[in-house]
Write a protein that binds this DNA or RNA. Structure first.
Length: 462
RNA sequence: GGUACUCUGGCAGAACGGUUAUGCGUGAGCCUGCAAAGCUUAUACAAGGGGGUUCGACUCCCUCGGGUACCUCCA
């Protein structure tokens, strides 16, 4: 499998000879997660599920930044301790992402639980003369790392001239960034240099190394993390251990809304909670996977609606497979095998989920075509279903399940309706159809038989 | 100003030198008691503008232009 690497600007082969180690920069837990966060995490979820489907072992580490100015500010606003803010939003995180059908990472390390490791890491940087303590904190000396700028393709002198931030006079160089900030505002920790808290970038260097070792396979996150976050991580990690850091840097494009980046600071975010309530997990996933992960996608109700239509087709396909019992059948093994191969091929090539979805819809279409022409038999459906389920699992799509009791009720209502239709009592038959509709059961009348499907309840689908 | 990404049909979006996939939308038809769903079929004097390389370019090169992101916290 190849993935476009931001550092080398080329596609790199994922070395999957042994366990594949992935570090994903997660969220700072100070507010509701939004659809932009969802996209990045869904992309990595698909990557992971695809690799696992290939029987590869994947170790996915995703951090929570749980110490940060924003968390502290919010805590002050609400008059509660910072850890309660982070605790609340970590809970919200799992509420949202579990519902989005994200497989939980191997581990979710938190910055506050790795303060000792962070201090040790900084100690070594200081010993090597790469970091220094000054009045306000401990800083990483960018000039000691000649390759600084290699990820974001920035030249150090250009950064200097373009620097808009207020220069902290206690730094040796305006580009130097904090690895430890002195502070008396809680939360703080003691350190050999003074009381304070870690800088933002250091946690990822420390935790990725701790859990995955120095040279792991893929390091990912949103594009907006390239600079300064990932640039600084590389500097810290490679300066610390003198070895190459992550092998592949994979960055997911932003989600815009009306052409503008969705971000908390712009106040134009759509929270996952909101989108889940209105559209449900499957449509969000289809939407997030509808373009190449590296590109921008624009959030709009129209796009979600389009994906709702697609999702209904997928549901139809599933229920056609469940109910398949035609006698006459076509030989479809080869066709399905080709679809399966194409699907994999698309993902192998830089996780092209859009193309992969095309293959999936081909399978859906083929199934529905067979059903329409009364040529979808049991053997066919077993072959197709196997692939349908494999693909659904990789993409993280989930048909709502139905329990036995519900099923029996539906079957009995349908047979009543069939009886009434046979007697041409259409008004009463239609009443039953309406009744089923209210249960989100949709009937599809085929020649000689009626099959049903349970539609996922979508708020916006009215 | 710098860097990166991006510009393909009404919309979304692939193809990485060789009949513009796929989905949505729209039109027509089939199916149906009627619906719904589904199926069939049609839908670009086109590829941001202009050059070039090539037998042939969406795909490579140059140039001009638009958009977005990053350069400050951000998935």
């Amino acid at each position: 499998m190849n993935i476009q690497d931001t550092l080398s600007s080329t596609e790199q082969k994922v070395d999957n000879s042994e366990k594949i180690k992935i570090y994903l920069c997660g969220v700072t837990v100070y507010d509701e997660s939004h659809i932009g966060h969802a996209r990045t995490i869904i992309v990595f979820d698909v990557l992971r599920k695809y690799l696992e489907n290939k029987k590869k072992e994947v170790e996915l580490i995703q951090n929570f930044t749980d110490v940060d100015d924003k968390i502290i500010n919010r805590a002050n606003d609400e008059g509660i301790p910072a850890h309660e803010i982070s605790k609340r939003y970590i809970e919200n995180y799992f509420r949202d992402f579990d519902e989005l059908n994200i497989k939980r990472a191997t581990n979710y390390p938190k910055a506050t639980e790795h303060i000792e490791d962070i201090i040790e890491f900084i100690k070594k940087l200081i010993e090597k003369g790469i970091a220094y303590a000054s009045e306000n904190g401990v800083y990483f000396s960018v000039s000691k790392f000649p390759e600084y700028g290699k990820l974001s393709k920035k030249k150090i002198d250009e950064l200097k001239s373009g620097s808009r931030i207020q220069v902290d006079e206690t730094k040796k160089d305006p580009l130097d960034f904090a690895v430890w900030k002195f502070s008396d505002v809680e939360p703080t920790w003691e350190s050999p240099w003074g009381k304070g808290r870690p800088g933002w970038h250091i946690e990822c260097s420390v935790m990725s190394m701790k859990y995955l070792g120095g040279n792991f396979d893929i390091h990912g996150g949103g594009r907006d993390l390239i600079f300064p976050h990932h640039e600084n991580e590389i500097a810290q990690s490679e300066a610390h251990s003198d070895g190459k850091f992550a092998k592949i840097w994979m960055h997911v494009g932003m989600v815009t809304i009306a052409g503008e980046k969705m971000s908390k600071s712009l106040g134009n975010t759509k929270s996952i909670k909101y989108v889940l309530e209105n559209w449900g997990p499957n449509i969000i996933r289809l939407f997030c996977l509808s373009g190449h992960y590296s590109k921008v996608i624009d959030y709009s109700e129209e796009m979600l609606k389009e994906n709702l239509t697609k999702w209904r087709q997928v549901e139809t396909c599933y229920y056609e497979l469940i109910h398949a019992n035609n006698v006459e059948q076509e030989n479809i093994s080869e066709k399905i095998r080709n679809i399966s191969t194409e699907f994999d091929k698309s993902l192998e090539d830089d996780l092209n989920t859009h193309l992969a979805l095309s293959s999936f819809f081909e399978l859906v279409k083929e199934t529905n075509r067979l059903a329409a022409s009364e040529k979808l038999g049991k053997e066919n459906s077993i072959i197709i279903m196997k692939e349908f389920e494999r693909i659904s699992k990789i993409l993280g799509l989930n048909i709502p399940k139905i329990n036995q009791e519900e099923k029996e009720e539906i079957d009995s209502l349908i047979s009543n309706r069939e009886k009434l239709r046979g007697e041409k009592q259409f008004e009463d038959a239609d009443k039953i159809r309406d009744q089923l509709n209210e249960m989100n059961i949709e009937l599809m009348d085929h020649k000689g038989k009626t099959i049903w499907m349970k539609k996922e309840k979508i708020q916006k689908d009215c």
